[in-house]
Design a protein around this nucleic acid. Sequence first.
DNA 1: CCGAATCCACTAGGATACTG
DNA 2: CAGTATCCTAGTGGATTCGG
Lengths: 117, 117
Amino acid sequence: MKADPFNRNCGSRQVIDRIGDRWSVLIVLALAHGEQRYGELAQRIDGVSQKMLTQTLRGLERDGIVTRTVHASVPPRVDYALTDLGRSLLDLVAGMEAWATTHLGEVEAARARYDAR
Amino acid sequence: MKADPFNRNCGSRQVIDRIGDRWSVLIVLALAHGEQRYGELAQRIDGVSQKMLTQTLRGLERDGIVTRTVHASVPPRVDYALTDLGRSLLDLVAGMEAWATTHLGEVEAARARYDAR
DNA sequence: CCGAATCCACTAGGATACTG
DNA sequence: CAGTATCCTAGTGGATTCGG
């Protein structure tokens, strides 16, 4: 049976939700250049709450997109990194960022026109 | 000033939310091959409610990604189509669908492993 | 330092009924 | 046909507190 996101029962819908999710996108982008500590992610991704960061990281780990490595040290240290599957997502996520930044002006202009009617 | 999705106040975050949204992705995909009527979209996109379909279409129209054309006929007829901006999104959205469908198996396997621990 | 747990406001999103 | 209006529930997501 072929995967079909137009079918409501197809798991590909959940996958689209995950990879389109705001925090997922930013986390994958932040991990593009190598592993990062939890605190580094929290700092770099402005505005993310502890809860959403942890929750999203767990989801990404569950889906096999990131790895979580705990170093038994004091103070504790936890590193996150992309898996092979996660790296296969990089082009796509970078594409989303690129589209968003390059077309931001057009979108804002369109909104202004729409709201002015 | 350069657009930076890592900054919480940057509008590019909203743009990522829009283009990553489940219903937005499916609508843009459905419009890939030309304009469609409201009812055609509702039928093709399995599981979407009237509310979410209308709401998402309005958002896409506001952001300049789709056009809405009302034909003054009885019964009424409303066509939706991609704008140039919307078409510039096609590669990206098709990429999301492709990634989701081709890696669905890996994601599900990763989930099964994770949940079995 | 890296979270887990709890509380809470808010909204996303579905079901249903109605209208031009 | 293509919406709009209303109600309702489940979940999102922030703030705060606690723990290993």
